[in-house]
Computed example of a mutant assay.
Amino acid sequence: MNRQHRMRLLESQVRAFTTGNIEYINNQWVFFDDETEEAASLDEYLHHEIEVFQNKSWKKGILFEDGKLGFADDIYFLKNQDLIRIRRHLVYSLERLIEDLQDDALIHFITTLNSLKFSIYDCIYCYNHLTFLNKNQPNSGVNFIVFDNQELICTVQHHFTYYEKNSDRFEFTLNSGKRLIIEKIS
Results as ranks from 00 to 15, higher is better:
F172Q: 11
K117R: 07
R8C: 01
Y127D: 11
L113Y: 06
A39Q: 13
S140P: 01
F109Y: 13
I84V: 15
N114F: 02
Q102C: 01
I181Q: 07
M1D: 12
L63G: 03
P138I: 04
N175C: 11
L152H: 09
L94S: 08
N128E: 03
S176G: 07
I86N: 04
G177K: 12
L90Q: 13
A105L: 05
D66C: 11
Q54S: 04
L133V: 06
I75Q: 13
I124E: 05
M7L: 15
A39H: 05
I50L: 04
L152C: 09
I124T: 08
G67S: 12
H48I: 02
L78Y: 04
F118Y: 03
L133E: 09
L130A: 10
D100L: 02
F77V: 14
L63E: 02
Y162I: 12
S57Q: 07
L69V: 09
D73H: 14
L9G: 00
L69E: 02
L180F: 04
E23W: 08
Q102N: 04
E38Q: 10
V91Q: 02
S115H: 06
R87T: 02
D73E: 15
R8W: 00
V14D: 01
H48S: 08
K60C: 00
L10N: 03
Q4Y: 10
S140D: 05
N149V: 15
R179F: 04
Y121N: 01
T112L: 05
L152G: 01
S115Y: 13
H48N: 07
V14N: 01
L83Q: 07
D103I: 03
E99I: 12
Y127R: 09
N134Y: 11
C123V: 15
T111E: 15
I22L: 13
D104C: 03
H159A: 06
I98P: 01
D103K: 03
N143T: 13
I86Q: 02
I185Q: 04
Y76S: 03
F132A: 11
S93Q: 15
S41Y: 12
Q54N: 12
N136I: 07
G70N: 12
T19P: 00
H158T: 09
N128S: 02
Y92Q: 05
L152M: 03
F118N: 04
G67Y: 14
R6Q: 14
N139V: 15
Q4T: 14
D103H: 03
M7N: 10
I75C: 13
E23G: 10
N149L: 13
D122T: 09
N175G: 06
L180V: 06
C126W: 08
K68W: 08
